[in-house]
Nucleic acid binder design. Sequence first.
RNA 1: UGACCUAUGGUGUAAAGGUAACACACCAGUUUUUGGUUCUGGUUUUCUAGGUUCGAAUCCUAGUAGGUCAACCA
Length: 556
Amino acid sequence: MDESKPKSLNFLEEIIQQNLATGQYSNGIFTRFPPEPNGYLHIGHAKSICLNFGLALKFGGKTNLRFDDTNPITEETEYVEAIKKDVSWLGFTWENELYASNYFEQLYQFAVDLIKKSLAYVDDSTAEQIAAQKGTPTSAGTESPFRNRSVDENLTLFKEMRDGIHADGAKVLRAKIDMAHANMHMRDPLMYRIRHMAHHRTGNAWCIYPMYDFAHGQSDSIEGITHSICTLEFDVHRPLYDWFIEKLTIFPTHQYEFARLNLSHTVMSKRKLLQLVNEKIVHGWDDPRMPTISGLRRRGYTAASIRNFCDRIGVAKRDNLIDLSLLEFCIREDLNKSADRVMAVLDPVQLVISNYPEDQVEELAIENNPEDPESGTRSVPFSKNLYIEREDFMLDPPKKFFRLGPDLMVRLKGAYIIKCESFDLNEDGTVKTIYATHFPNSKSGSDTSEIHVKGTIHWVSIPHAVEAEIRSFDRLLIVEDASELGDDFMKFINPESIQITEKAFVERSLRSASVNKAVQFIRKGYYCLDPDASSGKLVFNRTVTLKDTWAKEQNK
RNA sequence: UGACCUAUGGUGUAAAGGUAACACACCAGUUUUUGGUUCUGGUUUUCUAGGUUCGAAUCCUAGUAGGUCAACCA
């Protein structure tokens, strides 16, 4: 990095830099990534992860991974494990693995403290009554009839709640603030509710659970978090966040909000992603079409490309809709440098080299990656009978078609220049077999033919080809912006978001393909082996296509 | 008919009162044994109206537009 010309800072970096400059936080800053373990992480979480960990890394601080597990109804250990896997896969190391549930006893004592200060009370109202008491954004609420219970009575009742004497919903603990406050969150918000239910970590030790607002800020404070960074929708919670900290006189943490990531042509909310899974639109949370971390990983996205993406999208407070093309750019940029080039024919048509000896097989040394001189070459078998891509041959080609057609010449990648002499058609008029002659003196690396062709096409030798299933993915939604669709987004699912090619042919070297190593199918895109592949069957996922200016030209 | 947040090219993000720039996308050309890559160039921008100032994307006022908030969710 060029230290003399630092990149401009985002608003959070500026705040931190200023904090540090004024001598605050001499022990360094502390951030936290606080997921609720009720689902899988998605690319929006990646933004938050990169932000929280990135800030600490940049300013010499630390980051905790804290599970916000205050609602036993939705949370499971399975999600905890998946989240930990995703965060580490992204390349980050947390200082401490913590849980809001670690603090249940402390939180209970905090609540008792507020009751003693006459700042909290037990309310017997029903959920409906409490909702009615809240009023509306434009009209003040009304005070609960239980609002002025004595401290002693509140203490007794709250203890009874903890001891399991009361049924779910019978009572709640509320903060006593201001039922006429302009901010709805300050109208005597709930602190505790009764839930006779086992928690994934604390089991049956508790039957009362703190609400988000009475757990998050307190957890931040207990951990000494200096910068509690969350998304914009929590902005209205901040006065309450500050109120609890002030009344409890505990370590003053500060909350800052940034705009969440929105990506074009997909949905991001856990609820909608869950719907896609439940309604079997996708095959699971890690379906390669999902914007989840696990989905992107299976799709072939690298951690580096996702970190780079998060870096490029920036951090600000205005709503945004990032175009999918930026994510695609980031993975192409990464894979272009690192992925070995191989040949695969997805839609095969037979090509016979008429003047090539019947039983001859040449082992051609073809470079693995022109972008990486260290990558060396591999041996690729060439023979008389080849498969080429059906779309690389046209019976009646337009003028700028640099591929094969009657009497046209092309180079076979890493092999010879050929000229099409004739072809057979199937009954339905499609091409059955193409016959061509090769120029023996045009062999790659020792070409003395003086023939110059505009096009190079990929191929595989039929007797050496390996069968593979190929799954090509495309955007999940046919609309850019799903934000206004609401639940109607299901009507805009791209029917071609997955296309399976059952029987493609790939070159021999791919027999040893591995799940973690991306390859480029020359002229087609970047691919990776799917975990569904077994020893007997290759299955590849298309991570992203190559840029295709020819397709663009054709669509004009 | 409230409170709060936000408003810069097609999409994002910078510019801390002093030449509006960077990336993606798009277009044209270059390079290329991938219609990939590379390289070069181009199109396109401060929500509106007032005000402060020598000077405003930036500060002030008013408007407009978008977003958030009325779960015993987080």
